[in-house]
């Protein structure tokens, strides 16, 4: 069950302010890092919504991100569609893609679910890779960006674009948190806890899972849509399955089933990547070691561990208060 605790609010706010400050004080390179963190966090929020609260560990979220990037990129680059309309199409399209994957895989459990979602992701990758109209493996250049000049924002400015991405991350978090607190989200947690019982109580589990997949897909697609605007260029690289793996690493590193964890995890992973990468090319090895430690030590992830310790401390305090 999801509750927007004060620990979550503080952590998400701290990361958000940290990113804004870093983007404002740092130069172009700092803003690139901020954008990378914000978009990865969006993708990981989408995945945690589905995996952490619905028990559906998807390995096609990287592909959904790519589909979002492609719908936005191809419509703006090829037909000059208005970016706002293209963004709407990207979000609707990825929601539909997610819904279809969710409806088909709803009865598949465990490792087979993971494999089935991976297969869907690979199908999307191959279709894009083989498609001449979409530029094949060369990709497409000339992707547009939102026009916010009416409100005095110039998105061709690296700072302002970075801030847009941070706003996107915050919005993704708020949408996911709102849905998880609703009847829909509670029901999703119920499916995660005991699917058979939910069905015996009258729930159409397949429909609910498919709808959850659609919401998660839309968030992942929105992240991809922003990524296409960022690079203004799309290629099949956006749909490579290792991105799904990276999102899962972020979710586990930050704390699965916490929603704030992905935000913390994304900041941690990208920061470590650049920090350790400054010393050695073998930074993957260090990230791997950190991930193993995170999984072995309590399996809660960084944010999960913080939340666990703080809530335990407040519990002992109340107990001490009662005994006093």
């Amino acid at each position: 069950m999801f509750y927007q605790t004060s620990i979550k609010t503080v952590c998400v706010a701290a990361v958000t302010f940290g990113l804004i400050a870093y983007a404002m004080l740092g130069g172009y390179f700092a803003r690139e890092i901020v954008i990378e963190i914000a978009l990865l966090a969006m993708l990981a929020i989408a995945l945690d919504f589905l995996a952490g609260y619905g028990g559906m560990i998807s390995l096609c979220h990287g592909a959904i991100y790519g589909v979002g990037a492609y719908i936005f990129g191809a419509t703006t680059a090829l037909s000059g569609t208005d970016p706002w309309l293209a963004a709407l199409a990207a979000i609707a399209g990825t929601a539909l893609f997610g819904w279809i994957v969710g409806a088909i895989t709803a009865n598949v459990g465990g490792i087979f679910f993971i494999m089935a979602t991976l297969a869907f992701g690979q199908m999307a990758y191959v279709i894009v890779f083989e498609s001449r109209a979409l530029g094949g493996d060369d990709g497409l250049a000339g992707v547009g960006r939102f026009d916010l000049s009416a409100v005095g924002v110039n998105l061709n400015d690296s700072l302002q674009f970075a801030l847009l991405c941070v706003a996107g991350m915050l919005l993704a978090y708020m949408v996911a948190a709102t849905v998880l607190r609703s009847s829909f989200g509670r029901t999703l947690s119920g499916i995660h806890a005991n699917e058979d019982r939910m069905q015996a109580l009258g729930l159409s589990v397949r429909t609910h899972k498919a709808n959850a997949f659609a919401i998660s897909g839309a968030i992942a697609g929105a992240a991809g849509m922003l990524a296409a605007q960022h690079t203004q260029y799309i290629s099949p690289e956006y749909l490579v399955w290792t991105l799904s793996g990276e999102a899962l690493v972020v979710v586990i590193l930050g704390g699965i089933g916490t929603l704030a964890g992905p935000v913390v995890g994304a900041a941690l992973l990208v920061t470590l990547e650049h920090f350790i990468g400054g010393y050695t090319d073998r930074w993957h090895m260090f990230i791997g070691a950190i991930l193993i430690v995170a999984v072995m030590a309590g399996r809660r992830g960084l944010f999960g561990e913080i939340e666990h310790r703080l809530s335990r401390r407040s519990e002992t305090k109340t107990e001490a208060g009662i005994h006093a």
Binding site: M1, S182, S183, F184, G190, N194, D196, L201, L203
Partner: peptide, 26 residues
Amino acid sequence: NLFEGLTVRENLGLAATTASGRTASL
């Protein structure tokens, strides 16, 4: 055949709400 990991209240809440069909509101 319970909802493990949740409280008694959450368990009963899931049962009552699911059976009432009010599961879709976002």
